[in-house]
Amino acid sequence: MTKVLVLYYSSYGHIEQMADAVAEGARAGGAEADIRRVAETAPPEVVTAAHFKTDTAHPVIESPAALAGYDAIVVGTPTRFGRMPSQMAAFWDTTGGLWATGALVGKVGAAFTSTASQHGGQETTLFSIITNLLHQGLTIVGLDYGFKGQMGVDEVRGGSPYGATTISDGDGSRQPHPEELAGARYLGQRVAQTAAKLSA
């Protein structure tokens, strides 16, 4: 069975919800899906003062070496000034050994993100994730327009051909819309299906 890793960092729980949806989609696509998060690197006083969400059912990823055990890796983070936050970047900075040996070449990759506003760096953040995946040799799957839920301007909605997205509002009060979660599931399913075809 194809194995998919959903690897995420979430400050306030929006990306955690999207990660759960991506994993649901991967399982619907016939894959086994694990969800892991990267370690929090912000000082405890910052985490407390900023009211980060610290309760989660998902364990921290054991080590970068764990990535090699999967057929596909889907990475999700919120944005920090139009790029992935330092917590996720710090993890990828430890994967040089995997890059040097080509351990991830030929696997499937994808990305998802959240921003406070509709134009708050969704696509640049997705590309900051995708760039790392491409350097590691992964084949990228986007949120193709087979998912019609990302179309239209009748209401605020996330979604990008480069990955699944949600919009949280500046105070984090907006939770992922059902259509955005559906996009995350669609992405997870496409990743699982693509990985299965490539490994056949």
Rank of each mutant, 00 (worst) to 15 (best):
V4N: 01
Q17F: 02
E32P: 00
P59T: 03
I130R: 11
T2F: 00
V4H: 01
V60D: 07
T95F: 09
Q17W: 02
A26H: 06
A192R: 03
K148L: 08
A49Y: 14
H14W: 06
S86M: 12
G149T: 05
E180M: 12
R190C: 07
H177Q: 14
H135D: 01
S117Q: 06
T124C: 06
E32M: 00
A19K: 12
I15Y: 00
G25V: 13
E180D: 15
L138N: 05
G152W: 13
G146R: 03
A100L: 11
R174T: 12
A26P: 05
G163F: 05
A49Q: 15
Y9L: 03
A182T: 00
L67Q: 07
V105R: 14
R27W: 05
A200M: 00
R83L: 10
A192N: 02
S10R: 06
K53E: 05
T77C: 14
V60T: 09
T139Y: 14
Y70E: 04
L181F: 11
I140Q: 09
M151V: 06
A28R: 15
R174N: 10
T131A: 13
A110K: 06
T124Q: 14
Y186I: 03
D144W: 11
V153K: 02
Y145T: 01
G170D: 07
L181E: 13
Q193M: 12
A196I: 06
G96A: 15
T124P: 14
L134N: 13
G158N: 07
H135P: 00
V74N: 05
S63G: 02
T79A: 00
T139S: 13
E24Y: 01
G146D: 01
G96D: 14
Y9V: 04
R37F: 07
L7P: 14
E62T: 13
K3R: 15
T54P: 07
I140R: 05
T79G: 04
I140H: 03
A19C: 08
R185Q: 11
E45Y: 13
V141E: 04
G163M: 02
Y8R: 08
D144E: 08
Q175Y: 14
V108G: 02
R185M: 01
V74D: 01
Q87R: 08
K148M: 10
R80H: 15
S11G: 15
I167P: 04
D34Q: 13
V74Y: 02
I61Y: 15
A182N: 00
Q87W: 11
A21H: 06
G137W: 13
K148R: 11
V75P: 07
N132Q: 07
G121F: 07
S168W: 04
A31D: 12
A49C: 05
A111K: 13
F91N: 08
R83H: 13
A57P: 14
D34Y: 10
A65G: 08
G172C: 09
M88E: 12
E62S: 09
K148T: 14
D144P: 07
M84K: 03
W99D: 04
A103V: 00
K148C: 02
G146Q: 04
V191D: 09
A196W: 01
S11D: 11
G109S: 04
D93G: 15
P64D: 15
A21R: 05
G137S: 12
